[in-house]
Design a protein around this nucleic acid. Sequence first.
DNA 1: CGCGAACTTGATATTTGTCAACTAAGGTGG
DNA 2: CCACCTTAGTTGACAAATATCAAGTTCGCG
Lengths: 250, 250
Amino acid sequence: MANPLVLKLEHGADLTNEDRALLQSLSGTARRIQAHQDIIREGERPENVHLIMEGWACRYKQLPDGKRQIMAFLVPGDFCDLHVAILGEMDHNIGTAWGCNLVAIPRRIIDELVQSHPRIARALWWSTLADEGTLREWLVNLGQRQADRRMAHLFCELLVRLQTVGCTDEDGFEFPISQIDLSDALGITSVHVSRVLKELQAQSLVTWQNGRLRILDAPKLKAFSGFNDRYLHLTRRRNGGAPSETASFG
Amino acid sequence: MANPLVLKLEHGADLTNEDRALLQSLSGTARRIQAHQDIIREGERPENVHLIMEGWACRYKQLPDGKRQIMAFLVPGDFCDLHVAILGEMDHNIGTAWGCNLVAIPRRIIDELVQSHPRIARALWWSTLADEGTLREWLVNLGQRQADRRMAHLFCELLVRLQTVGCTDEDGFEFPISQIDLSDALGITSVHVSRVLKELQAQSLVTWQNGRLRILDAPKLKAFSGFNDRYLHLTRRRNGGAPSETASFG
DNA sequence: CGCGAACTTGATATTTGTCAACTAAGGTGG
DNA sequence: CCACCTTAGTTGACAAATATCAAGTTCGCG
């Protein structure tokens, strides 16, 4: 099976075969992490860069009163903490939402790779900037859409992202997280998740059984939620600019 | 008066005097933009990098049904579109929330600066990553806090950010935006903004008159909203790492 | 002076949260 | 293999937060 990291980063830069081989070699020895474990905590300065190879993780913050907000779901091919070194320390936690295979890559390896391979450098920055775009869309989702559209929008996003890394089949994907996790991502209560979900299923938009989400009518679901995948920046548009552009920020 | 860009970027890297002089020279010829004008629109690929020197701008997305979500307020020292080149095109709009002085810097200039001055490169990436941290906190704000805390939290953030660039006086700052803009940032209606604001004023936390926001009791406001400025990454914590760290991603 | 945009206020509607009881499913020890 | 326990999910009744609608009010500005 193709490597999710390579599949993803193809969207961020024009990789060479050498680039691909190097990226693939990063994902050598994944280790298994159980569900609901923290991978990195707020305040830490991780020495390794963590890459998801399989399963689900999430970025989250926990408030003093116990409330929790999930700020991103991390799927295969996603980095947890690529550029923390520049910020100093983590300002949020990353935990598994379900069992997860992940690779810990020494920062030094990434640094070297980036210094000698400008396309990889660019692709990695692209992935960070695309994450930021996703975050912006989540903000719109929480701020402007009501619960049913909000949930539908998230499902659309996950479908597209998982398609990109080859983790879907024709009508859906493995989605083994709990309704409680989902409620923390959507900013609603788990009781309300249960009701809204029932509603989406009643409208024949999705089904979610045995940890598997089926998208019954993707176009309808996208229309319903106002989903447009532009913010994911998956379609590389030719950059007329000087060749320096690839190198300048790498 | 000190340059807001320099004041801000000091927090992102250990700048030399040469770095400071170069950054300062960027902000040469600001031009004035009226209130409620777009600076850059979704889908565009700006040729210049835009830097706010004075006034207020915001990132926002507009939904087909007319709803608008503001995703960030941009204040002096903030870039609008530093790294768009890597993403290809803007996935959101940037507009003035009020009159604004801004500088348009040719991308080539930035590219050259970054290639020859690693600390500046690092500081610019730092600013982008710190923006991302801010976005995450906004997500928590929208997802988990109710309207009064949410508004208070935003006020705290703006206070700290404006202090950083020398745009506050002892008890507040110029805040000439409309309640409608504020409502689009907080994800509530402007009617509700009016009510919540009245409440905050009744609690003697703030006053907002004649386009000027006074923070009457900052510690109380921070406690009330659960504000902690860690996510802004303004306090540089020493990075034990190898010197390569400054250069690796620059 | 009068217009229009922003803001305020009250009445009411809608969405979502809270609480509590119940059901279903998975794991563990006897 | 069953009794029991725990956790997740469901459902209904009710409460709280916020939205909507509509009618003022204020204020800058032509």
